[in-house]
Computed example of a mutant assay.
Amino acid sequence: MCFSATYGPPIFRAAMGERRFLTLLANISFDDPAERAQRRPGDKFSPMRDVFSSFDDNLRRHVTPSECLTLGESLIKFRGRCPFRVYMPQKPGRYGILVRTVADAQNRYLWKAWVYAGAPAQPEAAPPDTVFSKVDDLVNFMVKDVVRSGRNVTMDR
């Protein structure tokens, strides 16, 4: 549907051909199946954790945030099968993947992101900074890079 001349956005066809896209989709994997059984009980997000961590680190690598930051949550609408999909009746999409974010308020730049992957089956096997017992710990983790830097962090609730 994305590569359809009638219904798809032209940007998809301009970026690459449909055959190349399908070849890449069939052959690229972000997870090591040999280690999956070991990592899964401690982290439901383990198949994408390394890729997402790299993306998150690169968000902060080249940009210095302004003096005003906002900490919030985003529900990325998703109705498919996912072990950490959440239901939030107060959000417009109701079902999706919950992402906590810190964004630069002036430049509208996503500065840090953390995916909520649910409670692990084995918390002792969870990687560091993936499970927080209190909201205070999560907030401190999200803003630890700007503590005592003179910046304002705004959040709700």
Rank of each mutant, 00 (worst) to 15 (best):
M1D: 14
M1C: 09
M1I: 15
C2M: 13
F12H: 15
F21N: 00
L22G: 04
L22C: 12
L24F: 05
I28S: 00
D31N: 01
R36H: 10
R40F: 12
S46D: 09
R49M: 05
R49Q: 08
F52L: 00
D57P: 13
R60C: 04
R60I: 09
H62N: 06
V63A: 08
P65N: 05
L69T: 06
L75M: 00
L75T: 10
K77F: 07
G80P: 05
F84M: 03
M88H: 02
Y95M: 03
Y95F: 14
L98G: 04
V99R: 04
T101M: 04
N107K: 14
Y109E: 09
Y109I: 15
W114S: 07
W114E: 12
Y116I: 01
A117E: 13
G118D: 07
G118W: 11
A121S: 15
E124A: 15
A125L: 10
A126V: 15
A126K: 04
P127K: 05
T130N: 04
T130S: 04
V131L: 03
V131H: 00
F132N: 00
D137M: 08
N140P: 06
F141Y: 13
F141L: 02
V143A: 10
K144E: 07
V146S: 02
V146Y: 05
V147N: 02
S149I: 01
N152M: 12
N152D: 11
N152E: 08
